[in-house]
Amino acid sequence: MSKELVNLMVDLKEQEALDLTTKSLEQGVDPVDILAYARKGVGLVGEKFANGVYFIPDLVFAGEILKGINKLVEPYLGSGKEDDRKRLGKVIIGTVDGDIHDIGKDMVVFTLDMNGYEVFDLGINVPKEKFVEAIKETGSKVVGLSGFLTLAFDAMKETIGAIQEAELRDSVKIMIGGGQIDEQIMTYTGADAYGLDAMEAVQLTKGWIGG
């Protein structure tokens, strides 16, 4: 079943993947294994995305299929069992203060999660203090700031300033992303890097904390 489910995920065959999941569960296949295969499939979709074979809708739809599989598998899982994946490291992500755009941010969260990172998603319109608190609470070594509007330039700069003021700047790597984010804004905000898409966020994170 393993290879078949992975392939169905990679080919984005939703109905077939859901049918196979139902059949496998009925046959007594370990639900944890099913989820692992499904995630592996999504990981390969991510690779195809990074290689320019797949595009944003493919990545989004792979997430939708996974959601459907999760729903089917859930009743078969014991409590807490679904979260026993070994994580590669912690990452904090949020859309900065004043900006409520979430599509790009959600894709980064999803892709990092699929690639084995524990992601703390602070949501949208996140005040700078919340990022500081989250770094203290989670001990994350990577922070991702998202923003689509031009006002995000200053919100990002101020967030990074607050992290600096809290004397946490040296303990984290900061990446930024969003429609108008480029090298100019990376320099302006004092971020360590910027990325153009979700897979670049994964590559940056890998480079910083391994995995």
Binding site: T150, F153, D182, I185, Y188
Partner: peptide
Amino acid sequence: PASLLMTG
């Protein structure tokens, strides 16, 4: 670019 117009 908006980035340049806003911060350049």
